[in-house]
Amino acid sequence: MTVTQERPAVEVADHQQLVTLKIRRYDPEVDPEANWQEFQVPVEKGDRLLDALHHVKWYLDGSLTFRRSCAHGVCGSDAMRVNGVNRLACKVLVKDLGGRDGDTITVEPIKGLAVLKDLVVDMDPFFEAFKSIKPFLITSGNEPTRERLQSAEDRARFEDTTKCIMCAACTTACPVFWNDEAYFGPQAIVMAHRFIFDSRDEGADERLEILNEKEGVWRCRTTFNCTDACPRGIQVTKAIQEVKRALIFRKV
């Protein structure tokens, strides 16, 4: 069912354009079914999708629920499915989503995790997978009295995967994850990659064994959805393939 706001015509200033936000609404206390709701939002040239969502929440419908914190693409709270692909609402400009007069932008919660309300999903399975690959430095022997030194080359080996902000855009873009929550998902493998290829870490064997599980890296079908979805530009599929290679040749 599609509900359209019945309000007086929105005032649009000269420098603004009117776009339609089609948002997937869900509130189990009101309606057990999720449905689409459309909002007319005036946007400026530099407006991000998050600004448009704020306009809805602040001026049109205060019950709209979504996560956001830093609003600058660092905290990773506001991943959502925009026009069918996963994006951070704070990193994507409305003008890059079509965003011309009269255009419609669809906004849905990320897929594969249970929706709690509107655009908010239950992230617990996602964090479970993250925890299971031991996302912390594993060392043996005595603690050094100073920093653990590392050469620039050794650091560069895992540079790409240190950029992860855990927004879940990659994991919830993965068709395998949509159908099987038991799969670790791209994010957990990216985080494992970050430690496996760290020269200071000694837990590589352990993490590789964990990822060698039935629901581990071998479920990956290299569809590259994760790489497309990553707002940080991490080569996610490449990282997964590097973990596979490390498993085959047992060399990090």
């Binding site: 997978a129 299971s132 352990e206 064994e209 964990i210 599980e213 071998w218 498993l247 085959i248």
Partner: peptide
């Protein structure tokens, strides 16, 4: 999902599948 406390735990839980072999095959 594996909740191993050590490498031996991880190996005993993960060792029972042939996904690696099939992938190479």
């Amino acid at each position: 999902m594996i909740k191993a406390k050590s490498l031996t735990d991880a190996r005993s839980q993960a060792g029972s599948n042939n996904e690696l072999t099939w992938w190479i095959f």
